[in-house]
Design a protein around this nucleic acid. Sequence first.
RNA 1: GGUUCCGUAGCUCAACUGGAUAGAGCAACUGCCUUCUAAGCAGUAGGUUUCGAGUUCGACUCUCGACGGAAUCACCA
Length: 595
Amino acid sequence: MNLDLVLRAKVEEAVSSLFHQQTDNLQLQPTNQEFEGSHTVVCFPLTKLSKKSPEETARILGEYLQQHAGIVSKYNVVKGFLNLVVEDKAWVDVFKSIYGNKNYGHLPANGLEIMVEYSSPNTNKPLHLGHLRNNFLGYSVAEIFKANGYKVHKVQIINDRGIHICKSMAAWKLFGNGETPETSGIKGDHLVGKYYVAFDRAYKEQIADLTDKGISQEEAEKQAPIMQMAVDMLRKWEQHDPETTQLWKTMNSWVYSGFNATYKRMGVDFEKLYYESDTYLLGKEEVLRGVERGVFFKKPDGSVWVDLTSDGLDQKVLLRADGTSVYMTQDIGTAILRFRDFPKITGQIYTVGNEQEYHFKVLFLILSKLGYDWAKKCYHLSYGMVDLPSGKMKSREGTVVDADDLMNEMVEEAEKQTRELGKLEGVSETDAVKLFDMIGLGALKFFLLKVDPKKRMLFDPNESIQLQGFTGPFIQYTHARIRAIIRKAESIDISVNVADLQLLTSLESAERDVLKVLSLFENKIRDAAKEYSPSVIANYAFDLAKQYNQFYQSIPIFNEEDTSKLKFRIALSEAVAGTLKRAMLLLGITVPEKM
RNA sequence: GGUUCCGUAGCUCAACUGGAUAGAGCAACUGCCUUCUAAGCAGUAGGUUUCGAGUUCGACUCUCGACGGAAUCACCA
């Protein structure tokens, strides 16, 4: 039973019966804590129908609902706000449907399929904090869509070719002395990253040398021998030069094994990987066909453009004068390829930073100009940058927070705090290690997901490592606490089934408050998908845990004499634990039985 | 310079898309472990929502202007 829908229908019925007109924007919202009731009708917009003051309108409506609705036991009016008190029996019914549904909150399959792209790293350096936000976000949004009844395909495109990897290759050739992950003991992605940094250092030195000789900065950047070497390698790679290709393959394979370890740790996965080396030539034919159909045009030098000025944007190049592709071209090709690979998908979600907002706006516009209807269902899941207290992260200046390092630090901190709190009595060493992982990563994921993705956010290493308050571990802790109650109930042979709840007639306010929050889960899952925002779920999980802790503190469960009340409280606790667990899973966070 | 986004407590973030006295966490200060886990709970303090106009029953939310910040405006990816 969905109380929102039931009440909405009742109020609409009351309005049409009292005022003989339909209302199309009925505003039903949760009642503020400070007033009695759970649902509030905002009556200002209804005064047009009632031809009465807001207070009078609310009063008439409240009176009618109390008489006829069946589930409204009381009401009160504050200004133009009608606060409705739903009778406890209805709340118990709500709870019965929640408790009876082991998968409460998740919506039934809707037959739709979508694709979520996320992660999409370059292969010249290890993953950093920004990638963590991307990965957690993409994974979570995929889970949220699954919970909304979609079939979801998670993919990523790996930027495995281009000048960036050639830079690492050049530096490795010059300074590497054949170093490999095996000989050095360095994780593959970090090893390749080390040579990317080495490239940059040598490059800067060479530029300085050249400018000292009186060459202009711009010219020096071009002439620096190490840069020419990288450019040359890129050219050789494009010509399939065997030696270059071999080195490229080898170094990429180091990176992949490093990435795979990191992905495993992060708990994210992909159904299919796309490689830019396979897709970077795509889209060219599509663009040429667009020229024939007059969607695009050619300039005298032979380059191909799209004119978006009528859409408030600029002109954009799609093929260079020499016929080669640009980034946009291959994205057009890749998008089309994916709809061929997964013919049933209706749309795509691209998890990419907000610095590419313009790019995606243009991409979707071009696709729809080419006549692809699904372009309307493509969404750029754009997220803000993660700032450090010292400012922006810059790989070259060494101000990046490395993903592997950060995960390790978080887990270490979790271990430290767990030991300090003396929580490890009777816990085996392997279970303890699992627990530290769960807590440390839970804290990190929650920290990055609790903020609205669109917003730029600040990562303060000291604060982020906190495990109290509005954090993942707070919710994990609440779950573990409830599990202790369930274990106790089992140990003294108390079991609950839905029929036991029938006997319950009244609720304590602390119980009703928990139930109120509990009943919102389904709507939150819907909202989270509508807004592409895991933060909706994170905030909800926190609210629920907080509300439950208040109940936990104010009512000692096992002191209760009345069996039906005792059973209800156990069942309520169980339902909260299940909901917290499922909510956290939507964020990619697991919860422990004990902590 | 054009376009887009942002500015809320000392700090980090909310605010159901125009609704009630703007809420949480951290940090500070008070209390609460002999009863289901104190990674918790209860409380105190902290706000002219950057500033100024406007729209209306009602504005953090919409409009205009100012100030401050970010991204983007590549034949880079």
